[in-house]
């Protein structure tokens, strides 16, 4: 049986499942947020661990491989806890720890199995990744993280065009007053006047001129790439995720030059990632500049635009 951790509405997971079925394998899909109970965990003369999910018992022994796409493994108690008494408030955190130990046991035993995805690495530290990319020989944008205006001004002297972006993931903030979306943005120099001597630590990078962007889906040593001509559509040329009005950006299969490919593979191996989406920029001077890695990124578009059959590729790996 193949186990898949995902979201309810993730289409890529559904497509991979169709291939798993096509290959004659059974599967169980656990969608994030859905509840898993412990059935039993036996250690002694025999070893047995099973969960109850959606009324079915999943025995860890029967899991041949798993794909961690989204969501998380979370074990809860099948028995409702006491009402909100002061006693329960004191005890609850400890009960959480009890469950954590069970989760950890499951997770460690799952990690011994064949898998795709990085259960413990839902998000990466952008700065550590940039450092690793540089060490693997990839070009990176000149980067500064600072909350000091004088440092920013010093950086601006050498790199008059900057972008700023979040250090963590792209937040999607939904508030009563509306939706705040934070994208990678060109830094507006007019803002300088409004900045005090110190401000919240922020990541700035030199703006890299684009010929096109490259989106790579990496899977176990193989790179499947697209070139995205976002500069043809000015609106999207800083962050191609922002949809232009009407016409989609041209997105076509791309063959990564061998020297760059080897560096990307080395980077993923260094970071211990077996899959993920990698963004590069191809500059007008013929350089390839590394931007970032998304360990749980969407690959449906990369697969479709390159006709790479990635859903099948993933299913075949899991079922092999």
């Amino acid at each position: 049986m193949i186990l898949l951790f995902s979201d309810e509405d993730d289409i890529s997971t559904t497509k991979v499942i169709k291939w798993i079925v096509d290959l004659g394998q059974a599967f169980t899909r656990i969608n994030g947020g859905e509840i898993q109970y412990l059935s039993d965990l036996y250690l002694g003369k025999k070893e047995e661990t099973s969960l109850i999910y959606d009324g079915r018992e999943i025995d860890i022994e029967n899991i041949e491989a798993y794909w961690y796409r989204r969501g998380k493994l979370e074990i809860v108690s099948a028995q409702d806890l006491e009402e909100n008494t002061s006693l329960s408030k004191a005890i609850d955190p400890y009960l959480e720890y009890e469950l954590k130990i069970l989760e950890e046991y499951w997770m460690e035993n799952l990690l011994k199995k064949k898998s795709i995805g990085n259960m413990k690495r839902g998000s990466l530290n952008k700065l550590l990744v940039l450092q690793a990319a540089k060490e693997c020989g990839l070009k990176i944008p000149e980067t500064i993280a600072t909350g000091q205006k004088d440092k920013l001004l010093g950086f601006l002297k050498y790199h008059p065009s900057l972008i700023c972006k979040p250090l963590f993931e792209v937040p999607r903030i939904q508030e009563d007053f509306g939706k705040i979306e934070i994208w990678t943005e060109k830094f507006d120099l007019d803002l300088l006047d409004r900045l005090g001597a110190t401000f919240f630590p922020t990541l700035f990078q030199e703006l890299i001129e684009k010929k096109y962007e490259i989106r790579i889906f990496y899977l176990n040593g193989k790179c499947f790439s697209n070139a995205i001509f976002s500069q043809l559509n000015e609106k999207t040329s800083i962050d191609f995720r922002i949809k232009p009005n009407g016409v989609p950006n041209r997105r076509v299969p791309f063959k990564l030059p061998e020297t760059t490919r080897l560096k990307v593979v080395r980077l993923m191996e260094t970071l211990n990632l077996d899959c993920g989406s990698i963004d590069l920029i191809a500059t007008p001077d013929g350089d390839y500049v590394f931007l970032e890695i998304n360990p749980v990124g969407q690959f449906g578009m990369t697969s479709f635009c390159g006709n790479y059959h990635l859903e099948k590729e993933i299913a075949e790996y899991l079922c092999a």
Binding site: K18, V21, D22, F229, P253, F254, K255, L256, G306
Partner: peptide, 26 residues
């Protein structure tokens, strides 16, 4: 019409034609 783009001689091989193979599960 954005049907083509201009490139260098070196870039020609970096842009393969679309693989025309058709595959579907089931």
């Amino acid at each position: 019409k954005q049907y083509l783009f201009l490139c260098t001689a070196e870039e020609l091989d970096l842009f393969p034609p679309l693989d025309l193979s058709f595959q579907a599960p089931g």
